[in-house]
Design a protein around this nucleic acid. Structure first.
Length: 425
RNA sequence: GGAGAGAUGGCAGAGUUGGUUGAAUGCACCGGUCUUGAAAACCGGCAAGGAUUCACGUCCUUCCAGGGUUCGAAUCCCUGUCUCUCCGCCA
C-alpha cells in the first residue's frame, strides 16, 4: 500500500499515478477519512491521558488508605466516553484501511505512460540462429502435437478436473519435469538463488500482503472452510516468508527461487486464448523473488529479466521483451517487463514471464523492513519477482519450435541430460 | 478429533494476592573511560507504531491475536492462533 503521508502531502501526484494506471481514484475520500481519524485520535488520546493520570492517583490514595470513590465515579464516565470514541475511531480506521488496500502502487517515473497493452514498448527481440518467422513447413500447434505424440491429454484433464487442467503423459510429463529442474538448477547454481519449495495454499493475510486481495478475489480459488487459498503464483508464499519481519541490511539482497503449481480461476476469460495451454487453471512455474535495498531495486529488476531470458537463449527459443506501460501494469507493480516467446503455429507472441519491481508497496502491506547498518534505523525494503519461467506457454513455444516435418519433437540440448531422451515420437 | 502445558523486548529470562512495570536481570549491540592495540573491568545508551511540534519535547498504543471485567491488567475471564507433550486417526 501507499504511505498515507505521501497521499496526505502529495495528493495530486498520487491522483496522477492512479489515473495513469486506469484505476479508481479515491484520494479525496482517503484524505477525508484521514482527517477524521486524526481528529478522533487527538480527542481520544487526550481523554486517555487524563484517565491514566487519575487512575494512578487512585492507586496512591488507596495505598494511603484514603477514600477515592468520587474520583472513581468520575473516571467511570471518562472510561465510557473513551470506549465510545475508541469504537468510532476504529470504524474510521477500518474504513481508511480498506480504502488504502484498494489503492494501486504508483507507476515508477520511468514507466512509460499508456492506456493499454497496445502502448507497451518492445525493448528487445532475440531470435536463435537460423530462425525465420516464415515456417518452412506447416507447423502443428501444441494441442495437435500433444495428442499425436500422446504426451498431453487435455480431454481427460477436463474429465477429471474441468477444462484448463492439463494432464502430461509419458515423455510429456518427463519433459515438463526436466524443464522445471533445468530452470531451478540454473537459478540456484548460476545465479545464486536459494531454493524454496513453498506451501501451495496460503491464508488471506498472505494474499493481502502481496496485493492479490482484495482486488483479485474473483481470480482466486478459495477453500472457505479452512480460510486458505490455492496460490496463483509462488510469489505469494515466498514474499510472505518474511512478512512482519525485520531483516538486516547485511543480509540483503535475499534471493529465492521456487517451483510451484499455480492456480487461477481466470474468471470471465473463457473463449479468449483458451486453447490447450494458452489459458489454464493450473500450471507450473518457477518464480524468482528478491528482497533488496531500495537504492538497488532497479538494477535487480534488470537482473531478473536477464536471468529469465538467459534460459530462453539456452533453450534457443525466440523471445521479445516488452516494457509494460502504466495502464497495463498490475495492481502492485511500479515497473514491469513481460517476456514473450514465439509460437509459430499461433503465429504470435505468448507471455511466458513477467518481471516486476514492487518497490516498497508489498513491503508496506506485509510489513517487511530492514535495519540499516549505518544508523540502525528501520525502513521498508523493496520486493521484486519474476517468472523464470512459467512452463505452460513456454511448452507451447518449445513443442512448436522443436517439431520436425515428421511431427516429432527434438528435445533441446540443455534438457537432454534431464530427460534422458533426445527425441519424442 | 480428545487431554494437558506454554506464548513477555534482538535473544535468554523475571514478573500471575490487578496499582508510578514499556516492563527486573543476563547476553548481544552502540558510545565512552582504561590500554601501545585488543581483551577484561567500569560508566552511559539501546523497542516499535501513532498523534502533535520548526525543533527540544509531550502524549497515546503495544507483554501471541481479538473481545470482556475494572477508576486501573503482562497480571482476572472468554474466544481464536501457534508451539510442545500424551491418546486416537491417517498418509
Amino acid at each position: 500500500m501507499l504511505d498515507i503521508k505521501l497521499i496526505r502531502e502529495n495528493p495530486e501526484l498520487v491522483k496522477q499515478g492512479i489515473s495513469n494506471k486506469n484505476e479508481k481514484d479515491t484520494v479525496d475520500e482517503i484524505l477525508a477519512a484521514d482527517k477524521e481519524r486524526r481528529e478522533l485520535v487527538a480527542k481520544v488520546e487526550e481523554l486517555k491521558a487524563k484517565k491514566n493520570k487519575v487512575s494512578q492517583e487512585v492507586g496512591k490514595l488507596k495505598k494511603a488508605g484514603e477514600d477515592a470513590s468520587d474520583i472513581i465515579a468520575e473516571m467511570g464516565k471518562v472510561a465510557n466516553e473513551v470506549k465510545e470514541l475508541d469504537e468510532k475511531l476504529r470504524e474510521v480506521e477500518d474504513k481508511l484501511n480498506e480504502l488504502l488496500m484498494w489503492v494501486p502502487n504508483l507507476p515508477n517515473k520511468n514507466t512509460p505512460i499508456g492506456k493499454s497493452a497496445d502502448d507497451n514498448i518492445e525493448t528487445k527481440q532475440w531470435l536463435p540462429e537460423g530462425f525465420n518467422f516464415e515456417n518452412d513447413f506447416e507447423k502443428m500447434d501444441h494441442v495437435e502435437l500433444g495428442k499425436k505424440l500422446n504426451i498431453l491429454d487435455f480431454e481427460r484433464g477436463a474429465k477429471i478436473s474441468g477444462s484448463g487442467f492439463p494432464v502430461y503423459v509419458g515423455k510429456g510429463a518427463t519433459l515438463e519435469r526436466a524443464l522445471i529442474n533445468y530452470m531451478l538448477d540454473l537459478h540456484i547454481n548460476e545465479h545464486g538463488f536459494t531454493e524454496i519449495l513453498p506451501p501451495f495454499m496460503v491464508n488471506a493475510e498472505s494474499m493481502r500482503g502481496t496485493g492479490q486481495l482484495p482486488k483479485m478475489a474473483d481470480d482466486m480459488y478459495t477453500c472457505e472452510k479452512d480460510g486458505v487459498y490455492p496460490i496463483p503464483t509462488a510469489e505469494v508464499p515466498i514474499t510472505n516468508l518474511h512478512r512482519k519481519e525485520v531483516l538486516e541490511e547485511k543480509d540483503l539482497p535475499i534471493n529465492y527461487v521456487g517451483y510451484s503449481a499455480c492456480f487461477r480461476r481466470e474468471a470471465g476469460s473463457y473463449g479468449k486464448d483458451s486453447k490447450g495451454f494458452l489459458r489454464v487453471h493450473q500450471f507450473n512455474k518457477i518464480e524468482m523473488v528478491k528482497f533488496v535495498k531500495p537504492e538497488t531495486s532497479y538494477q535487480e529488476l534488470d537482473k531478473l529479466v536477464d536471468y529469465a531470458t538467459e534460459i530462453l537463449e539456452k533453450l534457443k527459443i525466440p523471445y521479445r521483451i516488452l516494457q509494460l506501460c502504466s495502464g497495463d501494469l498490475s495492481f502492485a507493480a511500479a515497473m514491469c517487463f513481460d517476456i514473450e516467446t514465439w509460437s509459430p503455429a499461433e503465429n504470435k507472441w505468448l507471455e511466458a514471464s513477467s518481471c516486476s519491481n514492487f518497490e516498497d508497496f508489498q513491503a508496506r502491506r506485509a510489513s517487511i523492513r530492514y535495519r540499516k547498518t549505518e544508523d540502525k534505523k528501520l525502513d521498508f525494503l523493496h520486493t521484486l519477482n519474476g517468472s523464470g519461467l512459467a512452463t505452460s506457454r513456454l511448452m507451447v513455444s518449445l513443442l512448436e519450435n522443436y517439431q520436425t516435418p515428421e511431427g516429432k519433437i527434438i528435445v533441446p540440448e540443455v534438457l537432454q541430460k534431464y530427460t534422458g531422451f533426445k527425441i519424442i515420437g
